[in-house]
Design a binder for these strands. Sequence first.
RNA 1: GGGCCGGUAGCUCAGCGGUAGAGCAUCUGACUUUUAAUCAGAGGGUCGCGGGUUCGACCCCCGCCCGGCUCACCA
Length: 497
Amino acid sequence: MSLEQELFEQRLARIPEIEKLGLKPYGHRFEFSHTLSRILDEYSARTAEELSERVNVKVCGRIQTIRRMGKAGFLHLQQSTARLQVYIKKDAVPEADFALYQLLDLGDIIGVEGYLFRTRTGELSVHAERLYFLSKNLLGVPEKYHGLEDVELRYRQRYLDLFANPEVQKVFETRARIIGSFRRQLEARDFLEVETPMMQPLYGGAAARPFVTHHNTLDIDLYLRIAPELYLKRLIVGGLERVYEINRNFRNEGVSTRHNPEFTMLEFYQAYTDYKGLMDLSCELLKQVAIDATGSAVVNYQGVALDFGNIRRLSIREAVVEFWKGPEKPTLEQVKDPEWLRSHSSKGTPGEQLMDIFERHGEDQLVQPAIIYEFPVEVSPLARQSDDDPSMTDRFEIYAAGMEIGNAYTELNDPREQRRRFEMQLAMRERGDAEAHQMDEDFLRALSYAMPPTGGEGIGIDRMTMLLTDSTSIRDVILFPLLRPEGPIGIGEWLGK
RNA sequence: GGGCCGGUAGCUCAGCGGUAGAGCAUCUGACUUUUAAUCAGAGGGUCGCGGGUUCGACCCCCGCCCGGCUCACCA
């Protein structure tokens, strides 16, 4: 028998012991008077004398540590990220409660009723007068000093990660604040939150390979969406002039520290503005999100201070010139010259060549938050062409810490040009580009009813969360990142005995 | 998918071609203000899986599984 199973059975055997004390090992309501964090907030500053006026509390949580010393002892209760010490003395609690105390295991969930005091060493604690048993832990818990460090276990058993490493909870609290901040800011600007299909008969709105699924009754294949864009623009046609959606996209592509197959995007569309208007809006949104998430517009990321209150704007071509790696720094004129582009990239068209060069020479050096604008038309099938250069579009991306975190453009609303772009994409698909855009005739029909001039933008919530929580892997900001299945676990058999 | 690194007790980690180790956790005992509690004792391992080399493999070789980093693709 493995040690783990031995431990499991030892603990299972405590259940009848607990029942002998007249207690239920699982499941009933517990009316607490304070959360642990409220006690810490309100009483951490109180001295022992100030606590001599009795403060009654009834609290609950998971047992994080136990120190037994014969006829008395201590334990730490943990609730969310807060922890509070409890002192149990044989004379101060009913006999059955002290018997219960002697049966407790690390990880059990209990309630404690008593009063606050400070121990001889000065730690704020609850002097227990009653104990309540709330739920039994049957498994060994990670070591108290190091916590759970095995990355695989942390992702597979996130529940364990969350209570063994309470700072992980903070990451997800920050993530929720980030989403809340975007919502509040957009609502304040009269944007309407909407939900559009995640299962789509045609996929579009981005360059990516999709997941395919099947509806049995209709007997049709459906795609998990790669972006909500085409549906959100249909809503603009319909007169919902400011809409946004925060939800999952699914892309059937590689997994890395920056990519999870499902990830969360904010997309918003505003009629009667353009990409320049969105640049201003983006700067306002990002600055406030940083403040709401971290308390400051200047955020520490991997030892670098990223300033979301001061976002630079430069064109792709300017970025290539500025961040050129190598001796022969090009001029702006050269970067516009097709000859020069061809001699520095093996890609097919000038636009693709420029993007290729930018990705090699600019992207990873955009550490401070920056807006990079003017993207080639070939890589922007849904964006409006620039008036002064039809090979470029009115589009920008937002970069920080070398990562793309946002993408925005003046929406293409000319249905004839949109049709031409779809044809272009189909030709690319013919040439073997599996990520090229599909033709969407219903979308063309919607545009044919006239879509107002519109600016649209997408912001990657996971990547924003990485930046604002100082996380280097997207898996650290997704509660349950995709992993291969782990195989048989075997606990069902133990529980069945 | 390629390259590099890793998988040893429940957790965190040593180890090494010659009898599998430590700390925490667990169990027994002592202890009525401890705090990485302390003290005395005990139990606990398919060394990721499968082959091979060898008198002998946790260790060397091959294949596979799982994970991390990285490159490619992408956001």
